[in-house]
């Protein structure tokens, strides 16, 4: 496996780029890259011989921390520091809904594979909010149970601040990572908390389930402790810990073929990890500042053997690689 650098866009945004995701292709257009930035905009990019900007979408206040695309490729959502989730059409930038659940911040977003639910990491509410995508109503709140013996006034309540979410490939489970390093797994259908996955003691900023058809229970987590953990999310066990990043691991994504994962870190590098060897096989140093997001293009279309990987960074730039 190998990443080959394709192109980079310098100053893709006016300020740090914090989030990226691929919007699936629709009937009338190819898949697009969606990026969110501190400059309060969300931008769309098309890839053919380098990245070309398609559109700049405004209407996001105080920095976009996360973006998510609906499986249909028609709509997308963004979360900003002002704690609003804005749902908009990809092609027209028409606001469909503005989601707000008071007293909870919003961080990472993800649509479930079926596209019926949008999960939003709920920050200090220590919960994940599930929004119905048909009517944009709050469907359920998956709360992390408070450890017993802790008074509500205890500051440690803060530590369960939820930062990241990930849907299992079948959409039945949902994992969320929090500031204190614990990962909580929920049964979505029953809206029930299942268990914690332990091992990190620093914020878990990114989570992703394995895409390999036979390793569906495998969950990858990226944490500020510089480690990437591989969990069996149902067996509650830590399978392996990958060390190598010199600073926080900010983002992790699994390759569509399930054989590798890519990580982005504060140490300004993007690493490609071979899951068989459990070692970094490639270190890419295109970026000059923290790499906030990495995203593999989902396996859309017909028989595309090469997948794209995008990385976005505080250096305002986007880099694109092909994975083969």
């Amino acid at each position: 496996m190998k990443l080959t650098w394709l192109s980079s866009v310098e100053n893709a945004h006016d300020d740090s780029v914090w989030a990226c995701t691929w919007v699936p292709a629709t009937d009338d257009r190819q898949g697009l890259l969606l990026t969110g930035s501190l400059d309060e905009t969300v931008r769309l990019w098309r890839h053919n011989d380098g990245l070309a900007r398609v559109n700049t979408l405004t209407g996001h206040c105080l920095g976009v921390v996360s973006v998510a695309a609906h499986p249909s490729g028609r709509i997308a959502a963004s979360a900003s520091i002002d704690s609003y989730v804005r749902v908009f059409t990809v092609d027209g930038n028409d606001t469909i809904a503005t989601l707000d659940a008071p007293s909870s911040e919003v961080w990472q977003l993800q649509f479930n594979p079926q596209g019926t639910t949008l999960a939003v990491a709920g920050g200090s509410s220590a919960s994940v909010k599930l929004w119905d995508t048909a009517e944009w109503k709050l469907n359920a709140t998956l709360s992390i149970p408070r450890p017993e013996g802790i008074k509500p006034s205890d500051k440690s309540g803060n530590k369960k601040f939820v930062l990241s979410v990930a849907w299992s490939p079948d959409g039945r489970h949902l994992a969320c990572g929090s500031m204190d390093g614990t990962i909580s797994v929920f049964d979505v259908a029953r809206a029930k908390f299942l268990h914690h996955l332990e091992g990190h003691n620093m914020p878990v900023r990114s989570l992703v389930y394995s895409t390999a058809p036979l390793d569906k229970r495998v969950l990858f987590s990226a944490s500020d402790d510089g480690q990437v953990h591989i969990y069996d999310s149902e067996g509650k066990t830590l399978i392996a810990s990958l060390s190598g990043h010199a600073s926080w691991v900010l983002s992790v994504d699994a390759s569509p073929d399930g054989a590798a994962i890519a990580t982005g870190s504060s140490d300004r590098t993007v690493r490609l990890w071979d899951l068989k060897m459990r070692a970094a096989t490639q270190i890419l140093t295109n970026h000059t500042d923290q790499v906030w997001g990495v995203a593999f293009q989902p396996p859309g279309g017909t028989g595309v053997r090469n997948h794209l990987l995008a990385s976005v960074s505080d250096d305002k730039g986007i880099s694109l690689y092909s994975y083969s």
Binding site: A212, R217, D232, I239, K276
Partner: peptide, 20 residues
């Protein structure tokens, strides 16, 4: 319980066991 086999896990000596 993880008894899955990795796509390329066959290269591994210990077939039948999970890569992880």
């Amino acid at each position: 319980k993880v008894k899955s086999e990795h796509v390329e896990g066959a290269q591994f000596n210990h077939t039948g066991k999970s890569v992880f």
